[in-house]
Nucleic acid binder design. Structure first.
Lengths: 137, 137
DNA sequence: CTAATTCCTAGTAAATCGATAGAATTAATA
DNA sequence: TATTAATTCTATCGATTTACTAGGAATTAG
């Protein structure tokens, strides 16, 4: 399941993607528009900024704007930024790999192979969903 | 990601699936064989029993055994029993549906549709992985 | 009756989540 | 330069969940 953070991030990106080119959106504007607690959204926007999805202008008349194409941002990326691995266990993860402590050897782990199949399918599906694909009504 | 509970449950089912027909496995035997904390495993086996995946014999020489075909038990079912919804948000879930509180209307929710596509793909992949498919080396 | 096992209920320490608070920093403009 | 409006940063907090652990009751075979 997605965390609230990831969900809110997606909604915020959706909101930004719907704005005119060159429009800068204030946090409060996004919060109201997408029904997100403002202070919580602040943190999320900072995370999105650190992840180089958006950039910001500070001070009066400042705010946030997309710096990547909405056709380019996928659900998989947002999931990874906020909720981490897409695989069901770290030992089956591409980007968040960690060995399992309770398996004797990786070869012997009977789960890993199946989980990698699922990861591949889920990842493919998640990479197919972009901000642009969601925004169009 | 899978919880430890779900992971241990899968490993326990795998262990049971590898035993001879009519063999009854004690908790301690499964715990040692699959590297699972025994007391924790007790609870998990009870959950699996309530979910009608296994049954038990009580008292001395008691233990657990599979009551469903290993070809029939899928990762999707185990996920749902221990970790709940497969969809990324409750509003996109088949078995754990709940409306989102932060969407005005369900139609208007731009996330839901994309998440349902992902759910369908993930579910299909998860239903393709059975205990039997994992057990064979 | 005894030993070995499942079954049941609590409890607990640590982590995570969802948020809130408040102040520092930055920038536009009057 | 002072004011105002915004982002940015750091810290904290309460509730929930997670991953166990503990202890004992119930059950059964011999």
């Amino acid at each position: 399941m997605l965390s609230h953070k990831a969900k809110y991030a997606l909604k915020a990106l959706l909101y930004l993607a719907e704005q005119d080119e060159n429009h800068i959106s204030r946090t409060i504007e996004i919060a109201d528009g997408a029904n997100i607690p403002k202070k919580f959204l602040e943190q999320i926007l900072l995370d999105l900024k650190r992840g180089r999805f958006v950039s910001s202008k500070q001070g009066k008349f400042g705010g946030y704007y997309l710096i990547r194409s909405k056709n380019d941002i996928t659900l998989a990326e947002i999931h990874r930024l906020f909720d981490g691995a897409i695989a069901l266990l770290p030992c089956a993860s591409l980007n968040f790999y960690e060995p399992c402590s309770d398996c004797k050897t990786e070869e012997e782990c009977s789960l890993r192979h199946g989980l990698m199949i699922i990861r591949d399918e889920t990842l493919k599906a998640m990479q197919g969903i972009t901000i642009a694909s969601l925004v169009k009504k």
